[in-house]
């Protein structure tokens, strides 16, 4: 995990302790004190979401579009 970029590490850490989250919820959590030190770019959000998208490509998380937008979820073994 430490090989991943900071934004990606942050997304994984946020999703570790929850079932699934919307994009807005992830960004809100990312901006809290607990996570602000791990990630960068969460204010604008676009590069942060791009990092989440890369995690989807790597098979580490999933995203599903539905009512209200996307929900992101950790892939559990």
């Amino acid at each position: 995990m430490s090989d991943l970029p900071k934004n990606a590490q942050c997304v994984l850490k946020i999703l570790e302790s929850t079932d699934s989250l919307t994009t807005k919820e992830i960004l809100e959590i990312a901006m809290t004190d607990k996570f602000a030190k791990i990630c960068i770019d969460c204010a604008g959000g676009d590069t942060f979401v791009a990092a989440a998208d890369q995690l989807v490509e790597m098979g580490l998380i999933t995203k599903k579009f539905g009512k209200g937008g996307y929900r992101w979820q950790l892939v559990k073994d």
């Binding site: 919307t22 994009t23 960004l27 959000g45 676009d46 979401v49 996307y70």
Partner: peptide
């Protein structure tokens, strides 16, 4: 709930690239 979802959806499903954020 987030403009990033608009950008992600259009990119994934329609190959349309728009910018999202502030």
């Amino acid at each position: 709930s987030s403009a990033h979802d608009v950008a992600t959806f259009l990119n994934d499903e329609y190959n349309v690239m728009v910018r999202s954020g502030w």
